[in-house]
């Protein structure tokens, strides 16, 4: 797997998604389906081109005995942040916006390397006060409230 060029997988993924959407468009009445079918058909052609390019690059690397390019060498950090973001968004309706924002902000600061707890506390207060003043007080946005606030 590691020796297969990433474009092969991207092309394949694009092809599968496009095929699924084309299938959905097939079940639509002709008029609203016309433009989507045109767009998806061109996307299918490009998916095939990207996939073929990936295969060619893989074969070339194999022939030359080189390692193919890998774009995802350092994915652990971004994925931890993304997971944190998903949990944060999930907690908003459960705990309330300000509580979950406080927990999530502290988590992200620690994850990104914050080591001073006084600074952490000050930033947390700053973020919450700023959001309250701008969005709740000034723009009159009713932010989601859960079990807490």
């Amino acid at each position: 797997m590691r020796n297969i060029h990433l474009d092969t997988f991207i092309g394949l993924l694009m092809l599968l998604v496009s095929a699924y959407f084309y299938y959905l468009a097939q079940n639509m009445p002709p008029e609203p389906a016309e433009f989507p079918k045109l767009v998806i058909s061109i996307l299918i052609v490009f998916s095939l081109v990207i996939m073929s390019k990936g295969v060619l690059l893989t074969l070339r690397a194999k022939k030359n005995g080189t390692i193919v390019d890998h774009y995802f060498e350092r994915i652990r950090g971004p994925m931890a942040v993304y997971l944190g973001l998903c949990v944060y968004v999930g907690l908003i309706e459960l705990l309330g916006f300000f509580t979950s924002t406080t927990i999530a902000s502290a988590f992200f600061m620690l994850l990104f390397g914050m080591r001073s707890y006084i600074k952490l506390l000050l930033v947390l207060i700053g973020i919450n006060v700023f959001i309250y003043l701008l969005f709740v007080w000034q723009l009159k946005i009713v932010l989601p409230a859960g079990v807490l606030i």
């Binding site: 944060y88 908003i92 999530a104 902000s105 600061m109 390397g113 959001i131």
Partner: peptide, 19 residues
Amino acid sequence: PFYILAPVIIVLSVVGSYA
């Protein structure tokens, strides 16, 4: 440092999308 900017960007992204 980015450890201060990151939570600010994330929180603004969430609250901005909601608003």
